[in-house]
């Protein structure tokens, strides 16, 4: 047990936690923005995959890393646009559209990957983001290395939480987004263009999901693999419920989640093989379900989530 405590106090553990939390933070905040405007985006799993492929391919073709991030965001935004055309303007089922977008985005990513690199057996690598050490602060004992030597994308994720939180709850734009998610009729009576606000939220949210995906290929790993998103998108959707649609709590949820994930990896390395490794790998999914069960009873869904808005229709 003493070993265990020692380990939790190591810088490496917390650094790993932040690293694992980063894609979840992007994905959860992206999904949160969509849902706040009243649109469930089940495209997240595929959009993250598309983002991870697009960003990686950009860099592999000679582009620079930040260009890759922007390109991933652009690809994510395109899928968001498609999603909003279907669910916002045509009012089609958000469930089925989202699943369709996930299928389309992931299969298209794999297709493009295979077509552009037809004869590779081992996935080629790129040079990913280097950790950025914040001057002075990074030299603090323990905390320094954990919190202040991180990928720039991790920094971006943390900043994003505060920006999105501020915009959602302190600006007219945020009010508009929340209003179309709660009561689109009233929003329209106020002169808001419900369709425009919703599609803007979906496009922006989808871009964030794609950036979360590209963190995997441009920072966490250095290559793109088939199936590498591995359910992270679905976990983000659970985290949004867990966070009661609040960015601050979403950050907390993603970190908590990553702590458990980092822990299970560590325990898996140390423990004898009494428990098969597959059960450790289940931990993230089981945790997500548990989180959903705990929070769902008093979950305050945005009132108009899943409800398409058609002008002049009640």
């Amino acid at each position: 047990m003493g070993d265990f405590l020692d380990f939790i106090l190591t810088a490496g553990f917390w650094a790993a936690t932040l690293r694992m939390a980063t894609p979840l933070i992007f994905g959860t905040i992206g999904e949160l923005v969509c849902e706040r405007s009243g649109v469930l985006n089940l495209g997240i799993e595929g959009i993250m995959t598309a983002g991870s492929m697009a960003g990686w391919m950009w860099v592999y073709q000679g582009g620079d890393l930040w260009g890759g991030v922007l390109f991933a965001a652009f690809v994510g935004a395109l899928f968001g646009l498609l999603h909003s055309l279907f669910t916002v303007y045509l009012g089609l089922s958000q469930h089925v559209t989202g699943l369709g977008i996930t299928m389309l985005a992931s299969s298209l990513s794999y297709f493009v990957f295979r077509m552009m690199l037809p004869n590779v057996t081992t996935p080629p690598k790129i040079v990913p983001f280097e950790s950025y050490a914040v001057p002075v602060l990074s030299e603090l004992p323990v905390v320094g290395e954990a919190l202040f030597v991180q990928s720039p994308l991790t920094w971006l994720a943390l900043v994003l939480v505060f920006v999105v939180g501020y915009v959602l709850f302190r600006t007219p734009l945020g009010l508009a987004i929340r209003m179309v998610g709660e009561n689109p009729m009233a929003a329209e009576a106020q002169g808001l263009n419900v369709h425009l606000v919703r599609s803007g939220a979906v496009i922006f949210g989808s871009a964030l999901m794609a950036v979360g995906g590209t963190f995997l290929t441009l920072s966490a790993f250095d290559a793109f693999y088939i199936g590498m998103t591995n359910g992270r998108g679905w976990i983000c959707i659970a985290l949004v419920v867990f966070a009661s649609w609040r960015p601050g709590k979403a950050l907390f949820g993603a970190l908590l989640f990553a702590v458990f994930d980092a822990l299970q990896m560590r325990v898996q390395q140390q423990a004898s093989s009494a428990i098969p490794y597959q059960f450790y790998l289940m931990a993230p999914y089981v945790l997500s379900i548990v989180a959903l069960i705990i929070m769902s009873r008093r979950a305050a869904y945005p009132k108009a989530l899943l409800v398409p808005f058609r002008r002049g229709e009640r």
């Binding site: 279907f86 369709g100 299928m103 299969s107 298209l108 794999y110």
Partner: peptide, 16 residues
């Protein structure tokens, strides 16, 4: 993977 793309596009198209 074209097969998966075709089925995904079919799903979206059938919604419309």
């Amino acid at each position: 993977y074209i097969a998966e793309v075709i089925t995904a596009v079919s799903l979206l198209a059938v919604l419309v």
